[in-house]
Design a protein around this nucleic acid. Structure first.
Length: 107
DNA sequence: ACACTGACCTCCT
DNA sequence: AAGGAGGCCAGTG
């Protein structure tokens, strides 16, 4: 499709797809990469629609504190944590422990 | 075309 | 240190 046809959401999905296995990133990092630094909400809102797409590891996207804020949008809510743990990511109290180490920033 | 919504972030008490 | 409010802007009704 033409670049003009690509919407903001699609860009977000493309970034999320590039997140390596066992790594995570934050909404703010994606927003900043897209040039909408203060618009981290848009990224999160885009993830809300990501369910209708496939191949989008939405569980690898968390907030600035490494907290699984969007887990309640998974079914069941514990799925997000399970997916992260299955990738070797340690999660405790809905928070990623070694968040700073496995943090991945879009190039 | 206007108003409201929202998986966040930062600043201000 | 903890809580509240505002700002950001693309989609949807």
């Amino acid at each position: 499709m033409n670049p003009k046809e690509i919407s903001f959401y699609d860009k977000v999905y493309e970034i999320v797809r590039q997140i390596p296995y066992g790594r995570v990133t934050s909404y703010g990092a994606i927003a900043e990469f897209l040039g909408r630094k203060g618009s981290a909400r848009m990224v999160g809102y885009a993830m809300n629609h990501a369910h209708q797409y496939e191949g989008i590891p939405a569980h690898r996207v968390v907030n600035r504190n490494g907290l699984l804020t969007g887990k309640m949008h998974f079914h069941p809510p514990t799925l997000m944590q399970q997916l992260l743990e299955s990738e070797g990511i340690k999660v405790q109290n809905d928070k990623i422990q070694n968040f700073k180490e496995i943090f991945w920033k879009p190039v």
